[in-house]
Nucleic acid binder design. Sequence first.
DNA 1: CTGTTAGCGCGTTCAC
DNA 2: GTGAACGCGCTAACAG
Lengths: 324, 324
Amino acid sequence: MKRATIKDIAKVLEVNTSTVSRALNNHPDISQPMKVKVQEVAKALNYTPNLLALNLKTNKTKTIGLIVSSVGKFFVPSFINGVGSVLESHGYKLVILASDESFDKEADHVRLCCNSQMDGIILSLTNQTIGIDHLDLVIENAIPLVIFDKTIKQNKFSSITINDAQYAEMCTEFLLNNNCTNILGVFGNPNMTITKERLIGFNKAVEKNTSINAHSIFASDIEEALQKTIIKLNEDASITGIYCMSDEVLTGATAALHQLNKLNDIKLVCISDGVLTPYHVPAINYVQHDGFAMGVATANQLIIEINSKEKITPIALKMECGWV
Amino acid sequence: MKRATIKDIAKVLEVNTSTVSRALNNHPDISQPMKVKVQEVAKALNYTPNLLALNLKTNKTKTIGLIVSSVGKFFVPSFINGVGSVLESHGYKLVILASDESFDKEADHVRLCCNSQMDGIILSLTNQTIGIDHLDLVIENAIPLVIFDKTIKQNKFSSITINDAQYAEMCTEFLLNNNCTNILGVFGNPNMTITKERLIGFNKAVEKNTSINAHSIFASDIEEALQKTIIKLNEDASITGIYCMSDEVLTGATAALHQLNKLNDIKLVCISDGVLTPYHVPAINYVQHDGFAMGVATANQLIIEINSKEKITPIALKMECGWV
DNA sequence: CTGTTAGCGCGTTCAC
DNA sequence: GTGAACGCGCTAACAG
């Protein structure tokens, strides 16, 4: 049986479709008895509004696009859950688009979001992205867009991040305060602003104290972090503290320590989303960069911008992170 | 500037909208020069087709709904990437809906998918779901739906799973072959069919050999797995092998072994998506339940059913898993 | 209070 | 080869 439309229910009641439409939308002009009758027939016919027709009419889709390099193990899943929980309560759907660290794909996805008339976009830049000209389309179409976590310097869109340098510095100082005089910083992909910022914080802490010996390595995935950490620790056996900028590199570094049987000799500290980190043994100190909370904040900002009538001035929100 | 429509470009060329439409769709009836002119104006006006109007016309949305308990750390992210990679190449968008292990939410999301006229649905049941009556709506609307991983006995929809009992048995036998005579099985939420199946496999292996002592515990999250494993190991110090049915409980069990300092004394084996497991030290043997591959298979099956003209007879695909 | 009409943007008859 | 007209399902402006 084909899906019922307001036309069908209008036919049954021998009234006009617009009457039905207004009755269903509880319009004040419609009499109570009529409303009741319409409701009944609607229920009997299993009527549900055709959202596609509504979309066309209102030029809204109640859909948000989330463009992210990929749905990895860390941070992003929590972030998605955070975004999802907010969007759901506002009746928005969330479309996931993976850019796979390719700038072209990122641009494609942005285009897709615009062409599909999405009501908003949430974006985390790839490590290849060095400009935001590809987002001009978004501005032309007046689609609210919020950038989170991985961003670059810009002032056209709101961004939700943390103070990367500050927390990296905090972590590094923790090592120094724990009598580590020779430390290693394990960083992610060097192209990312987030990496550069965290490196700045690391160096800042190191430079405060001239007696410190510091190394740093960059790794784009777990395996690379593992290999480079092993090499570094073999080169310099006197390293006693490691700062990891993310859960991903932490996983590699931890495996390296395991393999070298140095898990109890070297102090670890990291910036982590805090989901798996609590299960590290020996216990590990970390600054919690809560993905869920950031997802919630990002989604909320996006909703604000969507609902705002006037053009909003972009904000740059730095979220607070706690020490665990 | 407002978005251009075929009307706008028709006005510029002083032709009818239908001419423009046909020209853009490369209809044979349209003269070559006209096609060229239309293309040019379209480009000049930055024209892109309004997908919303097309959706209404064709009753298709090029959108697939993925309903999953939540986007956790294990398996699901890889699965999403697998699904996404296939869907992208077919021009479909992927909407993520989290049911949060609530049957009501699952039913709500199914309803949403139907009302939004999604072209297909991919579903993993919550651990509360004991029937599929809430999917009748899907059948009425003739929307292709594929169930993966967490399912129950049914014959209305295609399902993509693994032979849970078989691989659980295989894992357990591995322990027995490694001289473990007292073993512990760590399982997930006991409501899930997947848990029951894996328990069956575990028990089957155990029962083959009467001299084996076996325990089993059930845990719905990492923390519970951690706590219960500790208790069990304290109760019976002679346990020398642990089978973990998933990455999640493995994380808890590993933490327990760490804490009890038994990591090198107890043999671990598990069914894992194989993303973090390779970094376990000491190395751990596992049957790889590849999330990405399952995502690809599920998406492919869904595409087949979407493209099929006739009603398809559901298949129940059991994917092969490799031993690592 | 309810009916009529028009239109969202596009594709598709059926004419000419 | 091109134009006119209609319809997808729904809402809003205008009547009465």
